[in-house]
């Protein structure tokens, strides 16, 4: 079974880059434009892993994580945040917000894929 990834980013370029990289790596990819859109799509997509940008309109990445963790059914869902800076403080912030892990932008494809594999539940 293929691992399903929901990628949330407000930048179109970023979304296509994620889509290409993840599709090439054999993941099934669904896209969303911001936190709200992401939440809306969760039910339909039922992803194994979510990758989300932090700084987005309407609802940022942290807000998205809060909302997901508050949902009893999806509280354990792996969520990776895409951060533009590698600063430890941001990583701390991500962890405090309940992110499963983080990927530094601009991302290295192999690292991105490794990170997903590291958090994705094993799909039978």
């Amino acid at each position: 079974m293929t691992i399903k990834v929901l990628a949330i980013d407000d930048s179109r370029t970023m979304r296509s880059m994620l889509e290409v990289a993840l599709t090439e790596a054999g993941f099934a990819v669904e896209l969303a434009e911001d936190g709200v859109h992401g939440l809306e799509r969760l039910g339909a997509v039922d992803p194994d892993v979510v990758i989300t940008d932090i700084n987005m309109p309407r609802m940022d990445g942290f807000g998205f994580i809060d909302a997901v963790r508050a949902d009893g059914a999806r509280r354990d869902m792996p969520i990776l945040v895409l951060t533009t800076e590698s600063a430890e403080t941001l990583k701390d912030k991500a962890r405090k917000a309940g992110a499963t892990g983080w990927i530094v932008k601009p991302f290295d494809e192999s690292k991105l894929i490794a990170a997903i594999r590291r958090v994705a539940p094993r799909v039978a």
Binding site: P78, G98, R117, R118, V119
Partner: peptide, 17 residues
């Protein structure tokens, strides 16, 4: 670790790579 959505089994699977 569990609260942040991490799963030891997924880590082990990544390690086995």
């Amino acid at each position: 670790l569990y609260a942040s959505g991490n799963d030891p089994v997924a880590l082990f699977s990544a390690l086995s790579d």
